[in-house]
Design a binder for these strands. Sequence first.
DNA 1: TTAAACTGTTAGACTAGTCTAAGAAAGTTA
DNA 2: TAACTTTCTTAGACTAGTCTAACAGTTTAA
Lengths: 219, 219
Amino acid sequence: MVLTFTEENYLKSLFKISIENENQEVGTTTLAAVLGVKAATANDMLKKLKEKDLVLYEKYGKITLSIVGRTKAIEVLRKHRLWETFLYEKLEFSWDEIHAVAEQLEHIQSEKLVEQLDKFLGYPAFDPHGDPIPNQNGEMKVQFKETLSQIPMGTNCKMVGVKDNSSAFLQYVGKLGLGINVDILVVSIQDYDAMMLIEVGDQTLTISSKCSENIYVVQ
Amino acid sequence: MVLTFTEENYLKSLFKISIENENQEVGTTTLAAVLGVKAATANDMLKKLKEKDLVLYEKYGKITLSIVGRTKAIEVLRKHRLWETFLYEKLEFSWDEIHAVAEQLEHIQSEKLVEQLDKFLGYPAFDPHGDPIPNQNGEMKVQFKETLSQIPMGTNCKMVGVKDNSSAFLQYVGKLGLGINVDILVVSIQDYDAMMLIEVGDQTLTISSKCSENIYVVQ
DNA sequence: TTAAACTGTTAGACTAGTCTAAGAAAGTTA
DNA sequence: TAACTTTCTTAGACTAGTCTAACAGTTTAA
């Protein structure tokens, strides 16, 4: 079954919401906000997706992906992350530029293209933002990770990803000298506003809680 | 000005018709046939393209691309041929598989993507079918070429391209052992039906006029 | 426990791209 | 040049995806 770009985007958003907000119930309004459309529009589309058995949904109830819907969403996510990796590793795109272009490339329909791209890139398990890339069977490596804001004073850790994928955040973080696999030492944390003093290489940086909450690390 | 996929396809088809049938006038019916839509549909779209100053067109008159329309068409063609080259050279796609996927990839909007892809491929001048790839300024190398059917008996030549890009033709030609840069000796030509006896490597092949008319060669 | 606030649904309208059916213009040929 | 054929255009309809405006259901909190 071939889906339209729009249908794929709805499924992808539903999947992303479900993994980001674990057990939070997803409603029309949330979904609409994520997709940048009006609630009425999302409601219409949900009816169509239900008709095609891609979501489970009853009037005024919560929205869940069906098995097929979930599979489709993971396929799109796989393509998105493979393309991001390609753009970053092969075409000299920067961290903050890859997302927008991958949003377009993720809808290209060709199984061979996906598999050959995966092979060409050496079967990467994580994309340039540290997010896991689903394999051909839809399985993803789960990496235990915490946000930098959860790391206690005096502890060393290594950056493995970001929560916020916005261009603005990525540009800022990159400018600070942070990035995947960068070692970080938490020097001190302000009681009042959770501002953090961290050491990265030979530099000392002060970062806000908003920032440290959006950086994933492992100890 | 960002165009829709459909608009891009109309411009691309108009451009391709204009280079294939040099001074032949293009009408609604021809265009519609090339795009696989009905004449009424093509007519509607032509009105829109005219409104946007992408084509020159008067009721019951012939259709011509405007400067802007032509530029847009060449951009799409550039992307198409670069992607074909990428699929063939980097992702192990075969000759006959690349076109269909490139039809999708050619609509991705990102100037940086096109330029980086071109660089990554080493600024190729011709795609895997032997067709010239427009450079960033829209200029294409013109290679003097004839169809194999025009080569006289006893002459050596080299294959440089194909006229028919269909999967069926490419599969057939490939199976015969023909391909870009393959040397061909025209052994004999039947008077009656222009069937050709040719030597390729150590093989002798018999090919129809339909086939020899769709193969481009240089002497 | 009921009023206010929020969330979800429906109805009606719009655009892009397509179609069919019918009619108008142009070209061809006897 | 009149009749026929072909090509082109118009009118009206349909689907996908979107919107606004209004109404319905659910939740919250006074």
